[in-house]
Design a protein around this nucleic acid. Structure first.
Lengths: 192, 192, 192, 192
DNA sequence: CATGAATGAGGATTCATTCAT
DNA sequence: TATGAATGAATCCTCATTCAT
């Protein structure tokens, strides 16, 4: 078990290093050797845990995305009202973007570039299934606009990614107050 | 003139090739040699027109962005009502995203990665100054929500980028009807 | 130890190849790839031992120079008479120029071109400190002319470099007899 | 004639630029394009005057060397005494090294590297024929040591090159007084 | 005679990946 | 399992030289 433990530690260290370095330099400007060095590991060791560089990033992506989804729905209860449920999810996503910005920036990079294999990325917004279910309920209840989930997402959730990016680029400060503004705007946009 | 013409042709061909290849493979996975080949030019010739790879992409970015801005405001008349003006601009942006998707995808890539030099990217949304002016008027007139331009942008304009991306990844079809839905959603989100 | 040994072997092979190729073609006409090939090593391997081409040549220079100095003073005893001491050193330098002409030619190239970094070259003739000390003693004893060490060096030691060069270019044969002539001339030139 | 004049001007400008740039950067670090630019000429124009880069440097070398020889013997009268004649020549060479250091440094570079074609360089010290003749007379008259001209040259003339180099590298200042010291040393070295 | 644009060949350097230990 | 050394295949960029004008 000690051995297995050690292995998981190394794998985690590699994934952490990958996120940090890819965030700062981009995928192609991040050499395996640097990832190895930051994880205190030999370059060759990476290949014990991952097939190749692409696999390393793919797995990192999937892991971060799964963390994201878990975080977003951690406190969600599907039996609440549509409005309460949406607000809960939306605020969790906002929290994630603000407090876990390493992760959210990494996801954003992957979602908006050719870094990740098509298969991994093609899943679209299906990982937010509980939110989609909620929207379905909202549409049936006449609360949410009867339009494509992609548009709902684009107008209510995706703006948080943009604001996180703008903050990262020092163009904008995402204060508490701004989050309130953003929430109301999001809610207005998707409701009838 | 024939000579100068030829030069401009080559420069244009290089920029076109850059856009296409960077769109498909990303900046670092696009060798200068491929750009040259696609432009029917020797690799060395690129350096007659651009200082280096970074300069090539920077200039390409600035050129595309300038095309984008020109297109967006081409039909704009600043003396219309806020609603009319916004709709006009919004629809031009939507058109650009749909018909010039090579360009808009390239811009999106650049805006969301480390490809471009800080200075070029840091300009933020200032290139949309007429829109910002319109929003200012709208805020004064009690039509537009009195919130940060970045939030207004994130909720009303940026969604178009996301939808373009989703379409590019075959997750979504941006039909005429969807555009109507998206516009109403955008308008609802930013108005009081 | 086997591993370390191997490393040192490779480094030595690289330095040896560098000397030979730079001697025959000059610094800039010597590609790293040829150095690698001659050392039976991949081009990339060079960069495990040296930072870059400049560093490779700098280190080679320093190493050769240090060999030179060691050789020159190997048999020197600072308690001899000025004449005996000078003759000993002079003959060692002559020997080095004749038997290690690969080395001495390389040094000569470096000393007379812009190949080497200023810092490495600027040391001047200080590496011959024991000889300078001897001259000091000789000046105090009224044996050696009370003139600049640089002139003493130029007239008594540097001629050997010139003769080595002339021999290398097949203009001249540095026979035993010529060495005797050269020594007497050198001695005459620096003594009162 | 106007045309011919112009041509000679360009050729001279090219040779001048070559000297300056090769002095500062070395042969291989001096691109033809820079030579052309410094001479206010198109790169292609160089090839109207010289066959290729090697030819340009060879011709530059021969021209500078010929200037050198002319300068050295300009004031020489072969009917003086050996001592007077030698002193005259030696001082002209010293002057050249001090006042025309661009030229003398260039010559030194060429003489001590692989820059120049063998044929051009192989001439050795034959260009100093009047000096060799003088030495011959001196040997017959029992004034000059009966040893190889190369050794005489190495000990009496070549030191000036070394001192010029040392000065160029800021290790040494070649003052009037030092020149006197150097002359006496040179004379002592070659006389019986 | 003069040129600026164009280029093919080549060179320094990097990096994902492998392999002997 | 873990590694450091090693490398071949790229990649960016430069430059001597040519050619259409």
């Amino acid at each position: 078990m000690a051995k297995l433990q050690k292995s998981i530690d190394k794998r985690n260290a590699l994934i952490k290093s990958t996120i940090e370095l890819v965030n700062n330099n981009g995928f192609h400007a991040t050499p395996m050797s640097k990832i190895a060095k930051m994880a205190n590991v030999s370059p060759a060791t990476i290949y014990l845990y991952f097939e190749n560089k692409q696999d390393l990033v793919n797995q990192t992506y999937l892991e971060v995305k799964s963390n994201y989804t878990a975080f977003v729905f951690e406190t969600y209860d599907k039996d609440t009202s549509v409005k309460t449920g949406f607000e809960l999810i939306w605020r969790r996503i906002a929290d994630f973007n603000r407090t876990e910005c390493e992760y959210s920036f990494f996801l954003h990079q992957c979602n908006n570039t050719q870094i990740i294999d098509e298969p991994s990325r093609k899943e679209g917004i299906r990982h937010l299934q509980p939110l989609l279910d909620l929207w379905k309920r909202g549409k049936q209840g006449g609360v949410i606009k009867p339009i494509s989930d992609y548009i709902l997402y684009a107008c209510s959730i995706n703006p948080l990614s943009f604001l996180m990016m703008a903050q990262k680029q020092d163009q904008f400060q995402l204060t508490e107050e701004q989050v309130e503004d953003a929430f109301l705007t999001a809610w207005d946009s998707i409701t009838l």
